[in-house]
Computed example of a mutant assay.
Amino acid sequence: MPEIISPFAIMRVSKRSLFRYLGSLGLLAVILIFCAVLTMLSPVFFTATNWVNLLLQSTILAVLAMGLTFVMMTGGIDLSVGAVLAVSSMIGLDLIVDHQAPVLVGVAASLLIGILFGLVNGIMVTRVGIPPLIVTLATMGVARGIVLIYSDGAKVTKIPDSIIYWANGEIEGIPVLLLIVGLLAMIAHILLSHTIYGRSLRASGGNELAARLAGVRTKGVITGAYVLSGATASIAGLLLAARLESAGPNAGLGMEQTVIAAVVIGGTSLFGGQGHIVGTLLGVLLISLVSNAVNLLNVPPAWDQVVKGLVILIAALLDVYRRKYSQDGYSK
């Protein structure tokens, strides 16, 4: 006998789908409204030069945010990304500049450092059981201490032209940096949304116990997320050094707040299990638009931090409401 589907059940499913659909469009709508307002307030805003600069300035944040998306989907956090960015780029580029190591060796060393920090974070969280906030706060301090000791406060300059090209080169008029970040975004999106690992990560963040009972090796999956975050932090460090044509011990200082803001605004749940790369990139764009508006409208720079802090709070409140609505609202 065929199962009879209640019309109320159909209404609940439709309501759920509509809620998610509107949620995915909400951020894009906010960005479009923000752009419309800025266009009226500043004649410079909607120019090609400003938009190219805006996108280029958002690239480093985008790379860091993509890696952090994987971690936050587990219900964790990674406060060490800015410090890992600094220590990995400093040591990797110092090997190239001051120790005449081949470029590939220096780049590989930088990536390895980022991966090792991510691996330590992941093992401490999954195997030892230390809360992610404490673990990554500790590794942030360790990484900052190492880079200060290693550099003695000095910058690495005379970056090879082959690395500077990543940030300043163009292919058919398109900045190479945008192409690199676009490729990374495509890889991250495929990995998160179209692979077994992505589905396992989503399940582990949504309900780790249920995922483990279903056969998912949750500890390995979660550790992998921290490794990816460390790897993307090192990539971001190399790209930032290419943009600035130098690597300094204070690189990435204080970027943790901005990265977390972008990921949360992009729809990644603070409680884990929900998130996507496209949303993260939209969150990065909105954060970058706020900074761009501060510059164009001659607003005191301190207000940039105030606005970002308020945006994080609003995004967190929306995440709590979204989670409560998805769990309780449909059962009524």
Rank of each mutant, 00 (worst) to 15 (best):
L184M: 13
P132A: 12
L104E: 13
W166R: 00
I163K: 00
V156L: 14
V147Q: 12
I180G: 01
S193C: 09
V103E: 03
T195Q: 05
L177T: 00
I115Q: 09
I174C: 03
L183A: 12
D98E: 10
P175W: 03
L183F: 07
G198C: 03
A101C: 08
E170D: 10
G118D: 10
I134S: 06
I134H: 02
S193V: 02
V103D: 05
W166E: 01
A185G: 11
G129C: 04
L104M: 15
I187E: 08
S200L: 00
L112F: 15
M140C: 03
A143G: 08
L112H: 10
I164G: 10
A143I: 14
I113Y: 15
A167H: 08
V107E: 07
P102W: 06
D161E: 13
L148V: 11
L137P: 10
A185Y: 08
G153P: 14
T136D: 04
L177V: 02
G182H: 01
S162K: 12
V142C: 09
L111V: 09
V97R: 04
V103A: 06
T126S: 01
V135T: 10
V142K: 09
R199T: 02
I174G: 02
L192C: 07
H194V: 05
Q100Y: 08
G118P: 15
M140F: 06
I149V: 15
I149Y: 08
N168Q: 10
I174N: 03
A108W: 10
L137F: 11
T157E: 14
I171M: 07
V125L: 09
L133Y: 10
L177Y: 01
P160K: 10
I159Y: 06
N168P: 00
I171S: 08
L191V: 12
V156N: 14
L95Q: 08
I130N: 01
N121T: 13
W166T: 01
L178E: 07
I159S: 05
M140P: 09
T136I: 06
E170M: 12
S200I: 00
V176H: 00
N168D: 06
G153N: 11
